[in-house]
Design a protein around this nucleic acid. Structure first.
Lengths: 379, 379
DNA sequence: TTGTACGCGTTATCAG
DNA sequence: CTGATAACGCGTACAA
């Protein structure tokens, strides 16, 4: 009712003929309020379009119900889905996400933290930060609860050689398990299992000639390669060739596949580091006159939105993107979560049109691999 | 310095041996402060890691420097880019965006508005709201400044017939110009010009057999169709067939193209409603054994991230996505913008691999259409 | 069951 | 140029 400005609690109290304290209590569901009074207050609040002031409440309670979320960039294919998962779960729990796109710039990451601190954010989620432990370190130093979704990190290229040509040492297998900073929650896609799942799909179809198109020298890439190897060892078909592009740009990956196809014979089957790599492979195959899936089966990992639209549609291992986001929120807000969590989520095989048994319709035995399958590791 | 909780202005004042008023002024760059004092305060603020409390400031000043942004969903291809444009420009102007994904649900849209109001948001941007004028209406009723980016709206299918078979009446041409609610800013991609630009590219290449793959019965779809017609009229080649899918799902668009190709003869050229439709066309062509671009040239509109990854790479008219976002922010925050603005932005032709002259390498005359071209309407 | 009064961290007004 | 001081809207001890 104030002349300029919004209707405040005092206005509402006056309109109801009670004190602001009563209004406050009624609104917040305090049991020490008569049913009649509460209903009257609620009705009147509705009538006069009362909106509580978030700033005033935060100033008073010193808790903000805000979740700061830093993403590298939006539209990065799957990040949007993760963000959606965060938003919905946060909403259910009465929290409001505050998003900040860092574009991978460290100065913007620092600024994001400053903003969050000014806003009294207490919960912090970093989606797919590559490397850069400084951000996380500073966040915990400032007393924030932090969760990391699919945090990736650079890894010495030598480890790739260990997996490809030697034996994966403890350094590799440990990468798959424990994570760095102690007081932070890690919500992570199981890259090793995804690599295995993709590969098993191919071997189950009857393929015996396989290739892996590897990614950049980062953790997820190494682990997916490891999964590739493990599945092949199970099938008694290790080693198989591993392609690695000198640069992560699409053209480079395409070129390395093109070069490989020149000297190869169909039928061939490839598991690509991710869906984008798979797309590069699709293009290379097309240029080289190889038919997918007839001559070359391709399976990707991630299930980005566009995987359904490639030509042919891409068989891939889907990340549970929304769930990753939701679980990060849960980890932060769970009541008695008993310390930092490290959740690892399995992927799901999505079969489209880019894979088939080698050399035409295969044996009936392959039929049971059709349809979506969980990435569980049952023996 | 307080035991529990963050360092406050009072702490900082004490540490400097001045009053909080002085600190406040020094921090905000008030000229009525001696240079020495200001520097001392600034240094100390740095030393003790002082962070102003956004809530307290907002409570006091009643202005929030917050921009509420509602998007349908993230990861929708181009929305991420728009959002990025909003974020960067807002940051430059000292504003902080508050994002809310509505998933197209009206209840969530309403909730978004409630949140914004509670947060004392005064600036409001809706990105690609389809229909639903209620949201905008409520927003202006609540006193927000609102800007709409690429607001689309349902349109009677009869208008499509007018353009396709009859003469586009005033109702159609007006759609291209004025917009509904007066007190809101409209930042819009020029769909008509985009349709023209895509079509001209094809006619300039020498194509004489053209088709349009139309979209759902919404404004943008109608206007792109109109652009298609206009360019063809210029070239003296109107009418040409217009394909319309019964449903907006990819399969449906694919089917309608498949059916059309069955009775058609190459060389053919198609402008698709958007990049996703173009992808559907690519798939249909592939299935039908048509070669792109040899038998069929395809151009899309939007330039979603994936347009560069299709097989072959998709020629398309790019929306200036980041600029759309930035201009919406400008419209809201511009000092003396003299009332609501209606900005219309031109697209840019991006030539990739899905278009070529009909029947092999064409005349040299077509060469001057290579490279990116602005969609300006110079005669 | 309800009212009174205080303080959260800032900024703006008014003195000095 | 600087310092007291009040007020922003709300939640909560304390009193009634």
């Amino acid at each position: 009712m104030t002349v300029a400005g919004r209707v405040t609690m005092k206005d509402l109290a006056a309109a109801c003929g009670v004190s602001t304290a009563t209004v406050s209590r009624a609104l917040r569901g305090d049991p020490a309020i008569s049913v009649g009074t509460r209903q009257a207050v609620l009705d009147m609040a509705e009538r006069v379009q009362y909106r509580p002031s978030a700033s005033a409440r935060r100033l008073r309670t010193k808790s903000s119900s805000l979740i700061g979320v830093v993403v590298q960039s939006v539209g990065d294919g799957y990040i949007g889905e993760v963000v959606l998962g965060i938003q919905s779960r946060a909403r259910e729990l009465g929290y409001q996400p505050l998003f900040f796109a860092s574009e991978g710039r460290e100065d913007l990451e620092a600024e994001a933290l400053d903003v969050f601190l000014s806003e009294q954010v207490t919960e912090f989620i970093a989606v797919s930060p590559t490397g850069k432990p400084q951000l996380l370190r500073r966040a915990v130093e400032e007393g924030l609860h932090v969760a990391v979704i699919n945090g990736d990190t650079e890894v010495p290229p030598a480890l790739f050689d260990d997996v490809t040509r030697g034996r994966p040492g403890r350094r590799v297998t440990q990468l798959g398990a424990a994570r760095g900073l102690q007081p932070v929650h890690y919500i992570t896609f199981d890259d090793v299992a995804a690599g295995r799942l993709a590969t098993r799909h191919l071997t189950a179809l009857g393929h015996r000639q396989l290739v892996h198109l590897s990614g950049p020298p980062v953790r997820s890439s190494l682990l997916r390669l490891l999964g590739f190897r493990q599945a092949l060892e199970e099938a008694g078909r290790w080693p198989q060739p591993v392609l690695v592009a000198p640069s992560p740009v699409l053209e480079s990956r395409e070129a390395v596949v093109t070069a490989y196809l020149r000297d190869a014979q169909p039928p061939l089957a490839m598991v690509a580091y991710d869906d984008l790599s798979a797309v590069a492979a699709l293009r290379a195959a097309h240029q080289a006159g190889w038919l997918v899936p007839d001559d070359l089966s391709v399976v990707g990992i991630d299930d980005i939105q566009f995987a359904a639209y490639t030509n042919p549609g891409l068989t891939t291992v889907a990340q549970p993107k929304q769930e990753l986001g939701a679980l990060a929120v849960d980890a932060l807000l769970a009541p008695a979560a008993a310390g930092p969590q490290a959740r690892v989520l399995n992927g799901r095989l999505v079969i489209r049109e880019s894979t088939m048994p080698p050399a035409g319709p295969g044996p009936a035995a392959a039929a049971d691999t059709r349809g979506a399958t969980d990435a569980g590791d049952a023996p």
